[in-house]
C-alpha cells in the first residue's frame, strides 16, 4: 500500500492543479520544484482548464500490474491549452477515433486500485474527446 504517496498528489490528480511561476509566469504541470522556463523556485498553485489537444498517442495492449482490468487502453501526450504537456489515458473513445490534434477535455476517473481490490481506489485525470452538446 502506498497511501501517503497518492494522498499527497490528490489535488494534481483530481483537478490538474499545477503551478504558475511567480517569476516568469510560466505555467507548469506536473508541478516541479524549479521552474523549467526560468530556473527559479516555482510554488504558486494554478489550476489548469483541462482543455487540450492530442500531441501523440499509443494503444497499450500489454498492461502492467494494476491496469489489466482496463486493457487495452489508449495513453496520450496531451498538450494543455496553457502550454504544458501531460501524459494521460484517453477515455470514452474508440481506438480508431483517436488522432493527433484531436481536442480533448479532462475528466476525473478511476485510475487503478492501490495494490488489489482491497486497497484504496486512486482517482485522477483522464481526457476524452470534447463533448460540446447543444450548447
Amino acid at each position: 500500500m502506498e497511501i501517503p504517496r497518492h494522498w499527497r498528489l490528490k489535488k494534481q490528480r483530481y483537478s490538474l492543479q499545477g503551478e504558475i511561476c511567480p517569476h516568469c509566469e510560466g505555467k507548469i504541470f506536473p508541478p516541479r520544484d524549479v521552474c523549467p522556463h526560468c530556473g527559479n523556485d516555482a510554488r504558486t498553485t494554478f489550476t489548469f482548464s483541462g482543455r487540450g489537444k492530442v500531441y501523440s498517442f499509443t494503444h497499450v495492449t500489454e498492461a502492467p500490474a494494476g491496469f489489466e482490468e482496463t486493457a487495452p487502453y489508449t495513453v496520450a501526450l496531451v498538450q494543455l491549452e496553457e502550454g504544458p504537456v501531460v501524459t494521460a489515458q484517453l477515455t470514452d473513445v474508440e481506438a480508431d477515433e483517436v488522432e493527433i490534434g484531436m481536442p480533448v477535455e479532462m475528466v476525473t476517473r478511476k485510475i487503478r486500485s492501490d495494490g488489489n481490490e482491497r486497497g484504496i481506489i486512486i482517482y485522477g485525470y483522464k481526457f476524452r474527446p470534447v463533448l460540446d452538446g447543444a450548447r
Partner: peptide, 13 residues
Amino acid sequence: PGADEDVITMSIE
C-alpha cells in the same frame, strides 16, 4: 458505466 467510472467519478462531473 465505463470500467473507469463509479459513483464518485460520475458525481464529480
